[in-house]
Amino acid sequence: MASFLRVIMASLTFTVITLSGISCQSDFDFFYFVQQWPGSYCDLKQKCCYPVTGKPAADFSIHGLWPNYNDGSYPSNCAGSSYDSTGISDLKDQLQRYWDTLSCPSGDGDKFWSHEWEKHGTCSGLDQRAYFESVLRLRNSIDLLSALQSSGIEADGGTYTLEAIEKALTQAIGHKPGLECNRDVDGQRQLYQVYVCIDTDASTLIDCPVYPSSSCSSTISFPSF
């Protein structure tokens, strides 16, 4: 009898663990698609390192596609397959162009992509290939720099109102994005990251259920790169 109960308990434990893994991978409310401005990443005290492919283009680059809950929390490091660079080797040129790394020491991006897959991608309900393809499609369809430039907002170190930046991006995207700022070496707040909300299908743009903490002031700079 005792042996029978141990088998039953072991089976139940396995079932709970398995269901927990499934829930973690699919139980979320929306995605943040996050792009960052390289000039604001590099214009900090800790500086930055260009990737081994050279200085990236002066354009917004991908930070990641992050599953989130409506209460502002998010799942992370869910049960799933480990990162396999060979599965996306044919995407590497696009990834290095749009999802480059600026962290030090210089790298080819693989460490960055591995981190994003294992922390966020494993919770997306997508397999690795579909996750990276979805991110690249979103980047190709959401051109933040062109949207800002069309409204006369240039990455020239000038200062712009937060309202003007939000308006330009909202008109281009069709939904109000979330904005995050950081501080340059002189303490000036500057445009750092833009959060666009995406439905759980990883493709449909939606109104954000909740916005990230912006840390932006009413006027912010847009540094050159």
Rank of each mutant, 00 (worst) to 15 (best):
S20L: 13
S150L: 10
L91P: 12
A10V: 14
L5K: 11
A168S: 12
D186P: 01
F14Y: 05
D186N: 14
K92C: 02
D29I: 00
S221I: 06
G87Y: 13
G157H: 08
C123T: 05
S214A: 10
S82H: 14
L12K: 07
P209L: 09
F30Q: 08
V196L: 05
D84A: 01
D199M: 04
T219Y: 12
Q149L: 11
T219Q: 13
Y41E: 12
R97Y: 01
A155F: 00
H175C: 04
M9T: 10
S61I: 03
V34G: 07
E180Y: 00
L19R: 09
G87K: 14
G21Y: 00
V16K: 08
Q149I: 09
V210T: 15
K45C: 04
A58V: 08
L162V: 05
D93Y: 03
V7T: 13
A147R: 04
H175N: 10
A10G: 15
A172T: 12
D207Y: 08
P75C: 04
D199T: 10
M9F: 12
Q193E: 15
Y69G: 00
W66F: 03
C104V: 13
D90S: 14
F4E: 04
S203L: 12
H120A: 07
Y41L: 10
K167E: 15
S134K: 03
V7F: 12
C181T: 08
R6P: 00
Y83D: 02
L148K: 11
D127Q: 10
G21W: 01
L191R: 01
D71T: 02
Y50G: 01
S150C: 03
K45F: 06
D184W: 06
Y41Q: 07
T53A: 05
D207G: 12
S76H: 13
R6S: 08
Q94D: 13
W99H: 05
P105M: 04
G157L: 06
V135N: 14
Y83S: 07
S85I: 11
E133L: 05
C123G: 11
F31K: 11
E166G: 06
D90R: 03
I198L: 10
W117P: 09
K45R: 14
R97C: 02
C78Y: 09
S23E: 06
L44V: 13
F222V: 10
F14H: 03
Q188I: 06
L148N: 09
Q193N: 12
A2F: 15
E133I: 00
Y74N: 10
C123Q: 05
I142S: 14
Q190D: 02
A57T: 11
S151A: 10
R97I: 00
V34Q: 06
G157V: 04
E118M: 14
A57Y: 08
W117D: 04
G178D: 04
W37N: 04
A168P: 05
P212G: 02
Q188F: 00
R189I: 01
Q171D: 06
V7P: 02
A79I: 02
F14D: 01
P51G: 02
R97L: 14
S20N: 13
R97K: 12
